[in-house]
Nucleic acid binder design. Structure first.
Length: 416
DNA sequence: TCTGGGGTCCTAGGACCC
DNA sequence: TCTGGGGTCCTAGGACCC
């Protein structure tokens, strides 16, 4: 058996932990740049606010309905997520952290009462972290996912205990609620009159393989109770790393694009070093605002392979700026840029380049010194001049809460 | 004025090897 | 009448997830 633990309305719940007066009130959290609504309290859902709805279309509605609005505070959410995970590991030895707000638990070998266990987990996480969760339990990960959706409607716990129960549950599960069925496959299934998870299990294997490949086959078997998707116990290192952002304000100036792109390249280098990887490929892309129909649209990217795999700030910035200048043209108004590093490998086994003349040792010593200072005095306290000050392009985050759990200057204050 | 960010897996097809 | 067989590696594109 597997359990899927999912934090309810996670980002909103994180904000509520430190603002208890928000309990019972409509609350939403916005995406980067205060763009879209990406987390909603139950009250906000009941008001009819939709997932991923652009916030600017709802400015008046939010105000009129006294909805509390927050910018994304990923520092806070990341730390709260780690606290939830830590509590979960007290209950089971094997756990897969599936996303910032979800974890799969391996319950095979557990012989006690599942309902008692689930209740225990739910209450302990709430007490230790303040975060409300739902627990879905089933014989496969796909069924645990379905059970979790049911749990959200029935007090926070739902268990698929046996085959008869499974059968009745999947007859009541719409096909688009299955893990792994997205918009495109839903359209395909709809055209073929497949409307429930039960209908899906009756599909012919040959048809399924032709239309949905091995993914479709896996889903069918999982729905029938045969476990095909195993628990991933170790976090695999990433195969690609991206830093991409829409700008707070559009720009056509090369100097500002250079500031943004070099800053993103530095972020990529930091993320690479964190997982002890180096990158062999680097891509830079820039594009205009896809929502503005009155503007000429442009979408350009350039990928280069690095002479020697690297995770050094100065090197990645140099290559990123080269790519940017290859694709830049001054006649467009750019809305977004990004840097993606790919072809990652361990930093311990870098292939040297016969014609490489740069002094890597020197780079590394310099960067280590800078990292140390920045760790002590704050991110980007010392940076490359080309990174600029970001004032003209950085994110809008007008409703940011404090980093209550990770920064001494922002710790919660209690007045008595 | 205003619409997010960061990933994974699978497959087909081309290039290349002996 | 007629031009081999069997592989690997890489990439782009399409699907999905949160």
């Amino acid at each position: 058996m597997f359990a899927l633990v999912d934090c309810n309305n996670f980002y909103v719940s994180c904000e509520r932990v430190f603002n208890p007066h928000l309990e019972g009130k409509p609350v939403v959290v916005l995406s980067n740049n205060d763009g879209c609504i990406i987390s909603r309290s139950d009250e906000a859902k009941r008001l009819g606010l939709k997932m991923a709805e652009p916030a600017f279309l709802k400015t008046r509605f939010l105000k009129e309905n006294h909805v509390y609005v927050f910018s994304s505070n990923y520092t806070l959410y990341g730390d709260m997520s780690a606290r939830v995970t830590e509590t979960l590991t007290q209950f089971v030895p094997e756990i897969e952290i599936y996303s910032i707000d979800e974890a799969f638990l391996n319950l095979s070998g557990f012989s006690g009462d599942l309902n008692t266990l689930a209740n225990n987990i739910k209450n302990t996480v709430r007490r230790n972290t303040g975060i409300p969760i739902s627990v879905g339990i089933g014989p496969t990960k796909t069924l645990a996912k379905i059970a979790n959706k049911a749990a959200k409607l029935s007090g926070g716990i739902f268990i698929i205990r046996n085959d008869q129960h499974r059968d009745s549950v999947i007859r009541n599960t719409p096909v688009n609620k299955i893990w792994g069925i997205g918009g495109q496959y839903f359209k395909l299934l709809e055209r073929n009159k497949i409307s429930t998870a039960y209908d899906f299990t009756l599909l012919d294997d040959n048809w399924l393989r032709a239309k949905m490949k091995v993914m479709g086959m896996r889903i069918k078997r999982e729905l029938l109770g045969e476990s095909c998707i195993l628990l991933e116990l170790t976090v695999p290192s990433k195969k690609a790393i991206a830093t991409t952002r829409a700008f707070g304000k559009k720009t056509s100036k090369i100097e500002l694009l250079e500031e943004a792109v070099s800053t993103y390249a530095v972020r990529c280098a930091e993320k690479l070093r964190m997982q002890h990887s180096v990158a062999n490929l680097l891509t830079v892309f820039i594009h205009t605002d896809p929502f503005n129909q009155n503007e000429v649209q442009i979408n350009k990217s350039k990928t280069i392979s690095l002479p020697v795999a690297s995770n050094e700030n100065i090197e990645l910035v140099k290559h990123a700026l080269y790519c940017l200048n290859q694709i830049y043209s001054s006649s467009y108004n750019y809305k977004k840029a990004g840097v993606i590093v790919d072809g990652l490998q361990s930093e311990k086994q870098v292939q040297a380049n016969l014609f490489d003349k740069s002094n890597r040792e020197k780079f590394r010593n310099l960067r280590n010194a800078v990292d140390k200072l920045n760790y002590e005095f704050g991110r980007d306290k010392i940076k490359l001049a080309v990174q600029g000050d970001g004032k003209k392009w950085k994110l809008r985050q007008e409703k940011l809460s404090q980093r209550y759990t990770t920064n001494w200057n922002e710790i919660i204050e209690v007045r008595i």
